[in-house]
């Protein structure tokens, strides 16, 4: 019995930015985990071949045996390569190869892997490398939706604008003349105090320049660095503003309405300061 035709294919979401260091991998890990927490079977693919990071953020670096390139080259099967997350049900990681470069990825190879994953997963998160070259284009080519990670500063906004142009012109959807890739803006490392003093662009400045719907605003937070170093996606830290903001973003991605929060300058009271809140 062939049920494949009736089955809904996985939604492929690329997390991209153009600029490096804005929080793509942190966001991929957080959002992938958030979607899995909601009960959807999710896989996060690290497309940053040669600069593997996702495994560190997810805290599974010691369990990497095979990688994405091995699967493309048919040196290993997907089930051998996928790493099951120990904390979160329904979550899997497909690590990048550290010893190869972006040329190891081919359109046909990536397509084959994505098609196979599609049969089994509900969501496929593609963690894009920085830049606009082959690696980044490979990560976004098959995407249905894109989360454009942007910092509130001009160079990051400019690069996001550039990647939005590439999403609309060099993706499979664009080439096939299908409905364009769904675009979501995720503003990270947002510091309300520095926005107020004019050192950073505000949410409305960035929205005005990029003109795409806002998925969420993640406040600058020490919890993010701490979570990265511990290998725990920050979304699991329900005490932190960044974790809560990521959860809001995941809710919005699933079509729920959530008001924006953490956009105001926090005035710390004496007791809060004492308790280190």
């Amino acid at each position: 019995m062939n049920l494949l035709g009736d089955m809904e294919l996985a939604k492929i979401i690329v997390v991209t930015s153009g600029k490096g260091g804005v929080g793509k991998t942190t966001s991929s890990a957080a959002i992938g985990t958030g979607i899995a927490l909601k009960g959807h079977k999710t896989v996060i693919i690290d497309f940053d071949v040669g600069l593997r990071n996702l495994d560190l953020i997810m805290g599974c670096e010691r369990r990497v045996v095979y990688d994405f390139v091995n699967v493309i080259n048919k040196e290993a099967t997907l089930s051998q390569t996928l790493i099951k997350d120990k904390r979160t049900k329904n979550l899997f990681i497909l690590p990048a190869s550290q010893t190869r470069d972006k040329d190891a990825l081919t359109i046909e190879g990536v397509q084959e892997v994505l098609e196979e994953l599609s049969k089994e997963f509900d969501y496929i998160i593609c963690d894009s490398p920085a830049g606009i070259e082959k690696g980044a284009q490979m990560a976004l080519y098959f995407a249905d939706a894109a989360i454009v990670v942007t910092n509130p500063e001009v160079s990051s906004v400019r690069d996001s604008d550039r990647i939005l142009g590439i999403l609309q012109s060099k993706s499979k959807r664009a080439e096939d003349g299908k409905a364009p890739i769904e675009e979501h803006l995720l503003l990270t490392r947002y510091h309300p105090g520095r926005v107020a003093s004019g050192e950073m662009l505000s949410v409305s400045d960035v929205e005005d320049i990029l003109a795409i719907p806002l998925l969420g605003v993640i406040p600058e937070s020490e919890a993010v660095l701490k979570a990265s170093n511990q290998g725990t996606p920050v979304i699991l830290d329900t005490e932190s503003e960044a974790g809560l903001a990521y959860m809001d973003a995941v809710d919005r991605l699933m079509g729920e309405e959530r008001p924006l929060r953490f956009l105001e300058i926090q005035k710390k009271g004496f007791i809060k300061r004492l308790l280190g809140g």
């Binding site: 400019r158 604008d161 003109a211």
Partner: peptide, 25 residues
Amino acid sequence: KPIRSGQQVYAEGDLIVLAQVSAGA
């Protein structure tokens, strides 16, 4: 649609853009 940074659009006659033209476009 918006014309994004790095994109170039040329028209042999008139050009009408019903969205923004980003910096760098």
